[in-house]
C-alpha cells in the first residue's frame, strides 16, 4: 500500500538519460527517508533495469520509459514501465558466482545486481504492449551491511 502520492518521471529511451534517472531516484528516495545504504542500492537497481530497457528492450528504437517512486511502509518502491516486447527479468537465472565469469550466462550480471540490491522485484505485462517492473528496497540499511 502506497503511503502517499508517487513522484514520476518520463524519459526517452537513450543511455544519455541514465544520469538524470539516477538523480531523480536519488533525490526522491532520500526525500522518502531512504538511508544512504538504501540509496546506493535502489539507484543501482534502477540504473540496471532502465539500461536493460534501453539497450535490449527498445534496442535503438525510440520509445518512452515511465518511472514512479513512492514509499510503501518501510520500503521504497520504484515502478518502471515501457512499451517493449514482453520480457520478464525476474526469471533470468542467478549467475553461478563460483565459476569463471566467461562461463556465466551473458546478460545476467545486470539482473544479478538488481536482485542483490533490492528486497524484491516483480514483473507484469503492461496492457497492450510493454512491461511493468517494480523494484522494492527497505529504506533502512541492511543489518549485514551496517557495520
Amino acid at each position: 500500500m502506497a503511503d502517499g502520492t508517487a513522484r514520476s518521471l518520463t524519459v526517452d529511451a537513450g543511455v544519455d538519460r541514465l544520469a538524470g534517472v539516477r538523480a531523480f531516484v536519488r533525490t526522491e528516495a532520500r526525500a522518502l527517508g531512504a538511508s544512504e545504504d538504501a540509496l546506493v542500492d535502489i539507484v543501482q537497481a534502477v540504473d540496471e533495469a532502465v539500461t536493460n530497457v534501453i539497450v535490449h528492450g527498445y534496442a535503438g528504437q525510440p520509445g518512452a520509459i515511465d518511472l514512479a517512486i513512492e514509499r510503501q511502509g518501510p520500503h521504497v518502491a520504484v515502478t518502471i514501465s515501457d512499451a517493449c516486447p514482453t520480457f520478464d527479468p525476474t526469471v533470468v537465472p542467478e549467475p553461478d558466482m563460483s565459476i569463471p565469469a566467461e562461463l556465466r550466462r551473458p546478460g545476467g550480471m545486470g539482473v544479478h545486481l538488481i536482485r542483490v540490491a533490492t528486497d524484491g522485484f516483480a514483473h507484469r505485462p503492461r496492457g497492450g504492449r510493454g512491461n511493468v517492473l517494480t523494484l522494492v528496497r527497505t529504506l533502512r540499511a541492511r543489518e549485514s551491511e551496517e557495520a
Binding site: 539497450v55 569463471p100 565469469a101 566467461e102 556465466r104 551473458p106 546478460g107 550480471m109 545486470g110
Partner: peptide, 14 residues
C-alpha cells in the same frame, strides 16, 4: 556486443 564481454573473460578469477 555489450554484455558479451563477459564471455571473453580470459583472465578469470581462478
Amino acid at each position: 556486443n555489450g554484455w558479451g564481454a563477459f564471455h571473453s573473460l580470459a583472465h578469470d578469477v581462478s
